[in-house]
Design a protein around this nucleic acid. Structure first.
Lengths: 349, 349
DNA sequence: AGCTTTTTTGCAAACGTTTGCACAAACGTC
DNA sequence: GACGTTTGTGCAAACGTTTGCAAAAAAGCT
């Protein structure tokens, strides 16, 4: 054993005041060099198995952990994945939208399991148009997951050209350059419209802001079917803050109540608001107006009547996002992942 | 102007291949020393205003941003706040509990506003008993917010003794050492019980897991009132995963339907499950059984009938957490913040 | 025992910032 | 114009790791 590093004049084992903050400190008490400690803690095979175990035991005992910042700087990787939630078209959106929050929860689990930390950033693009660049160049993250394209499609495309480790939750457009994971929104829209029509609706309305691409695609799908089946469909733009949505729905119903008998809500949240307004006007669901939502949030099956909706598999989505991102971190140029949505028939249509 | 740093032989302004990755690069093209660039970007008054502006403009133009890791290492602070969500007594809990997720959203906003980033970590204490130490010692965060005490009260207390910048969302116990922000759960419980009794209930049941301190306090408050008013109350333990909860509620109701006429649900989520089960059994709310929830989630007012519940002000909570944490980062030894809950009377009691 | 090969270790140079210190330049003041 | 002040810069040493390289130690082979 190399005695060169042996601690000076500390014969008695006394209760330590935890002076072990750096790898060098630990090296001193272990009687080896810092380099060896580093390798031992990293579990490298270059160190003698016995000293490795001894050092690891020592580290555990002192509650020592190498400083991640220093490590990140030296290794040029941080072990942190950024998760950005752009609040583009409507700032209030994700606060109330439990869909995004549930996705986030699953992402946290997936990333943790793969040994990554998660750095969350909610951004308001209109206030800071450089949000994505800034996040990436901060040097604090190894890769980024963007939750929701919002109205930032073009900016994301731009960045994607020069930055591989990015995956986005959202809608897939023909020929887009950034890697996306998401449900086939257009197909979902089709399923919804088909269900409404099958249930007897002949005059459809779509409730939702068609600014974000996901929603636009849902509407487009519904329109495809409506046109093919010779059924009318109108798009009613709502904003995502709960109060505004309710107001917009109620004023539409006040004026056009007779003109529709089927509603496709762009999200379950909107569908809930619809149910509430319909109830206020004493309009029977599905008797007088059929209703289909989108997302299949946990509460969807708890409403009265339970909501017929289009399910996106959030867990599979989170898994896909992380999986693709990790492959991109390896240098793979991965394809997008479009998942099939599923019609969940309950009682509103 | 000091020409010593002028770039060598680059006469023509050509489209740059973005070689500016470090402060030293930028110093070179600006014709100054790295130190000056650092000060200029930090907006310090020690640099000449003119050169400061010039350097900042240059940085903007090249999309340059100092590496946060290096900066963190040197300054010994990262600008990152950790948010830990312990999944103690029931792993599934927070996935479904939109209360925590909403709180998280507000936290993100508050922290961003104060210039901090947010690092999210969901932890499973029973799998890793050192979760909190590990997070703190990682060197990656300046302070930590723990969302929910779960069953980790003692561990948090231990850590609090030696680590100032930590604030916890949860329940306040007499004489505890860690700084907590949260609603006065006991008072909330009292309000709920009082309301149920005022609405005519005489035999109460509390639905919820009394393991977590928040819930235990809610029950205790309700019990206080029940005893004072000579009303019976029984505690029915449920688990937080949605399916299990529903099952537990339904089996309790099947056996003891006649023994109660008022339910205090430990959270709105549980209250929703109750409503569903009651409806299945065709028990009228509030006609046959009164119901009060806790949290006032956004959906609470959208159920049928709208849920009477106890509101916690999540936004104020997030604000309080961040505010206290920042003061602790300055070295202040702050007191806990206990916020009064508010009874929201709707139609279930 | 002498030799080569393999394992194990130490040394020192990075990684990209920030900042105390010292010096240079510019500015007043008498 | 000589001398203090201010103001603006540059230098170089940190911050705590990791890792290529070289040297030392151990092991294997005639």
């Amino acid at each position: 054993m190399n005695k060169k590093y042996a601690e000076p004049g500390e014969g008695d084992e006394e209760a330590l005041p935890r002076p072990i903050r750096t790898i060098t400190d630990l090296a001193r008490v272990a009687g080896v060099s810092p380099g060896t400690v580093s390798r031992a803690l990293a579990g490298k095979s270059l160190v003698n198995a016995k000293t490795r175990d001894r050092i690891q035991a020592l580290a555990r005992e002192h509650g020592f952990q190498p400083n991640q910042m220093a490590s990140a700087l030296r290794r040029q990787k941080t072990g942190v994945i950024g998760v950005a939630i752009p609040l583009g078209h409507d700032r209030q959106q994700q606060i109330s939208d439990s869909f995004f929050m549930t996705l986030l929860g699953h992402l946290a689990d997936e990333l943790t399991e793969k040994g990554y930390d998660l750095m969350l950033r909610r951004v308001i693009p209109e206030r800071d148009e450089d949000w994505l660049d800034r996040f990436i160049r901060s040097g604090i993250i190894d890769g980024v997951i963007v939750i929701g394209q919002s109205d930032q499609f073009d900016r994301i495309e731009e960045v994607a050209d020069g930055y591989l480790p990015m995956v986005v939750w959202g809608n897939h457009q023909e020929g887009q350059r950034h890697c996306v994971v998401g449900a086939d929104n257009r197909l979902g829209g089709r399923l919804a419209a088909e269900r409404l029509i099958a249930a007897g609706a002949k005059r459809l309305a779509f409730f939702g802001d068609t600014g974000p691409f996901e929603f636009a695609a849902r509407y487009a799908g519904a329109r495809d079917v409506a046109q093919a089946m010779g059924v009318s469909i109108t798009s009613v733009s709502t904003h995502l803050s709960p109060e505004q949505t309710s107001k917009e729905i109620s004023s539409f119903l006040a004026e056009h109540r007779e003109e529709i008998d089927g509603i496709f809500a762009a999200s379950d949240s909107i569908a809930f608001a619809c149910m509430q307004e319909l109830r206020k006007l004493d309009i029977k669901v599905p008797g007088e107006i059929k209703l289909v939502g989108f997302d299949d949030l946990p509460i969807a099956k708890q409403t009265l009547p339970p909501l017929t909706t289009i399910r996106q598999d959030i867990e599979a989505g989170a898994h896909g996002l992380v999986d693709l991102l990790l492959r991109r971190l390896q240098g793979d140029e991965t394809e997008s992942l479009v998942m099939p949505p599923r019609l969940i028939v309950r009682e509103t249509a």
